[in-house]
Amino acid sequence: MTEPLVKVDRLTKLFPVSRGMFRRPVDFIHAVDGVSFEIAPGESLGLVGESGCGKTTTGRLLVKLMEATSGQILMHDDGSMIDVAHIGSDDLRRFRRRVQMIFQDPYESMNPRRTVFDTVSEPLAVQNIGSLREREDRVAQMLQLVGLTPPNTFLFRYPHELSGGQRQRVAIARALVLDPSFVVADEPTSMLDVSIRISIMELMLELADAFDVSYLYITHDLAVARYMCDRIAVMYLGKIVELGDTEEVLSNPLHPYTRALLSAVPVPDPTYRKPPVEIKGGITKAINPPTECRFIERCPWATDVCHSTEHPPLEDKGGGHFVACHLVEKGAG
């Protein structure tokens, strides 16, 4: 097996909740709780889950917009694995070239007072790459690649002169201008019109091949994840509950939460009647959650084992299909 590009090991992020006198942090929100996964070079991993399950926090930890509470992020760099958590300031700058992020909101991810050229050339400028002339050429080339043609009509436009889709193309150009090997894409199409979504997704796939870049694709839309990702990880309340090849996970969901997610996908057939929802109401609180299975309060099949033991580990149930559930037998995958 090839060396992974990114290796995340028991990554944890706790947000302190201050209460009472002297604002001592007494409680912690477990936003990301012991998450482990690997991403191979050129592979795209989809991170799927409901709002507030910690997908975005995981992405922000990976690009070092936040410091992890504990756990390791190892990134492949020139033949060796570097530890992102303990990175020096010189190495950090180099690390920034390798890892980029595409944000959800195309209307807010560009500075309204800076032109497209300023935005796309900013990474080059802060990394001191090339002369002004070279940057201009590079930016024009990037705009061409993301489909903003002819580039020189877009170079000196302000964000308010562009549509949402065009802005997201600019954001993609900015993320790829440093030629990174890993890009965290935080729901890049969720705020776009449905008619534009597919063209942006196609563009991202095309550029992934052209730039040999791996995505961590964060989304709540299973259809998007299926289109974009080689593998898929389902998150629930800070934990990964199911991880495997996209087709395998979607056609043979083993975790009750994944099954519930899939049953919520609308079917384009007016005569189709939805089966009754299999999950129950209560949601486990993310503040100081109990140690047993996170899904226990919504799980229809929870047994005594689930109540008496800790949160199940993410285990390979066969064929690289990882599930965190006591009730799923080995070999079910």
Partner: peptide, 26 residues
């Protein structure tokens, strides 16, 4: 808290760069 500030940080922008090219002009 705007994402373009995060984007500048991900690109490797220093604190001074972010303050003077993103926050002050806005």
């Amino acid at each position: 808290v705007k994402p373009f500030v995060d984007a500048a940080r991900v690109a490797g922008g220093s604190n001074a760069h972010i303050i003077f090219t993103h926050i002050v002009p806005n």
